[in-house]
Structures are given as C-alpha cells and as structure tokens.
Amino acid sequence: MDVDTGIDDALAILYAIESKQLDILGITTVNGNVPLDYVTKNTLKILSLAGENDIPVYPGAVEPYLREAVHEFKVHGNDGIGNALDDMVVTKPLEDTFAADFIIESAREHKEELTLIMVGPLTNLALALKKAPEIKDMIGRVVIMGGVVSDAGYGNMLPTSEFNIFADAEAAKVVFHKGLDITLVSLDVTHQVMMTDEHVEKLKGTKYYDFVKDATDEYMDYGLRLYGKRQCALHDPLTVGYVLDPNLLETKACHVDVETSSPLSYGQTICDFRGLLGKAPNVKICLGVDSGRFLEDFVEKLGG
C-alpha cells in the first residue's frame, strides 16, 4: 500500500488489515494530503491502533516529481487525521529503505503476484519506474485512487481534477504510460460511497469507534459544506474494497492521459471514450459501483 495518510487513507489501512484477506508486504508513504513527516507518523499511529506490528513502513517522496507541494489541511485537519490520535506515542521504527526502492525490490521478488494499492499521489511509483524501468513488466497490477473521468466538472481541486492526480500530475503521466495493468478508482465511483453518522454509530462499542468518530467529525463537516449533508466519501477504502472484491466495480479499458500544461485543467484525467486518438487502452476506468454492498462490508470489517 502506498499512502498519504489522511483520514480516508487511515480507514483504508484499517480496512485492509481487518479484511484478513491481504498479505500486506509493506506500506510506503508519500507527501500528499499532509507533509511527509505527518503522513508517516499518522501511518505508524494507525498500525499501532490496529495492534499491527509486523507491517513495515517505508518513508518516500518528500515532494512531487516536478512541482511544488500542495496539501489538504482543510479536509483532513491540522495533523491529517482530525487530531484523533494526538495522545498516542509512536514507538514503531521506520525502515531504512526508501519507498521507491522497496517498490523495486518487491516487484523483482514477487513479480505478477504483486498488487500496488496506490491511494496518494503517484510520486513513489514514478520514481521507481524512472530508476528501474524494467519493473513495469514485473508488477501484477496497480490499483489507483485518483482522477475524475465521466463526471468531469465535479473534481475536488479544480472542476476537472481530483487531488491525488492534481498533487503530482507529472508522476501520474509517467505511471499511466508505462504499460502497467492499471485500474483507476476515480471520483466517479468514490463519490457514490458516502459514510454518514449512521454508519459510524454502527461501530459503537467496537475497537475503532472512537477513532472513526473523532477522525471523521471534521471530514463530515467538510461534506456538509460541500454536499449539504454530514457525510464523507470513502475514496481510499473503496480502492482497497476493489482489490478484495473486483465485482464491486464495473470497469472498462480506455486510453487515459493526464493534463500537465493547462492552468484551467491541470491534473485532469482525460479519457478517450470514442477512440478518437487511435491509441491503445492503458487504464481500466470505473463506470459503476455496488455502493450498498461495499458500505456494508466496510462497516462489518471495521466492526470486527
């Protein structure tokens, strides 16, 4: 898992762990929702909350591939996880290996058995592909939370752009054009999986209730301002959900490129639905989601 641990990344990590279905080789961190030192500390805290001491954490890129960093404090709070674990002391050590190098090592060792779950900007993977381009033929699949395709105009950074791609569009462009098996879990489907206070209350009395309630409070207030209802999109957990159960999403292979020049649409994921460019499909985009089944499974897994 490659994360920029804000609130939904934290929930995705817990969901992945509690699914008991994944062999998580490691977690790599990347600058994104908040600066890298916050991201890494948040990731260690979430693993501690889960009682998970065996998953190594590899710190990654401090800044984007080319551009200046942008962050989302207004959504994720001052520390990235709504200050929900302020009193927790981190004791788990970090790994010495740089995140991109760990991706390279994992690809060489596990080859097609390796799935990369990317729920932050794609800087670490772009750096890995730059250093060792041969790994593009080794990695099994890459599942990315990012972009907005069919619902262009409903972005969350620019009208046409989603945060993870916008935060490092150059890195995304590199990754999209390397011939990897990519599925893009975009805002088109993640905006259909909204967690409400009712979902949170179903966790009452369970291990993660206090964290989920505290962490999502400000996130839900942001949703209230944006949608007129207290709710928050489970962007990153849905990406994990697709890895657990591919039948959750309806996908279609298309040619997708990333805009890196226009100030009006920087970071836009442009999908050639009609094949006007005459280029081969390089990304599986998402056209539909079984939101009810996903939300039920997510709450059930976190509830233990």
Rank of each mutant, 00 (worst) to 15 (best):
L264S: 14
P35W: 09
I165E: 01
L226T: 07
S19A: 14
A167D: 07
L302V: 06
K74S: 11
G140S: 07
L116D: 02
E300Y: 08
F166V: 05
D54S: 15
H199E: 15
M118T: 05
G205H: 11
P133G: 06
I270S: 06
L47H: 03
E296H: 08
K130L: 12
N124V: 07
D245G: 07
G77M: 05
L127F: 07
A69I: 05
V39I: 13
T260S: 13
S150M: 08
E72G: 00
R274A: 12
M145N: 08
V193A: 03
V143E: 04
S186D: 01
L36N: 09
T115G: 08
Y58V: 06
M138P: 04
V143W: 03
D37L: 06
L187I: 08
D86Q: 02
E296W: 08
N247H: 13
T91D: 14
A69Q: 04
S48H: 02
L94G: 06
Y208F: 15
D2P: 09
P246D: 07
R293D: 05
C232G: 13
G155M: 09
T97I: 12
S265C: 08
T160I: 03
V148N: 00
Q192Y: 10
G6P: 04
V75H: 01
I144G: 02
T269Q: 10
M195G: 09
P59Q: 04
V70E: 04
L248W: 05
E296N: 13
I17M: 08
V200P: 10
G303M: 02
K252G: 10
D210Y: 00
G292V: 09
V185Y: 00
N78E: 12
V90D: 03
L22S: 13
E300G: 04
S262K: 07
S106I: 03
E170P: 07
D214G: 05
T43A: 02
H235P: 02
N156F: 10
I24P: 10
N53L: 06
T43H: 01
K252C: 10
H199W: 09
R225F: 15
Y209S: 10
V299M: 06
V243A: 02
L238I: 15
P237H: 03
G82P: 00
M194Y: 12
G155F: 00
D37I: 01
G288E: 15
D9F: 02
C254Y: 08
G267D: 09
L287I: 15
A128E: 03
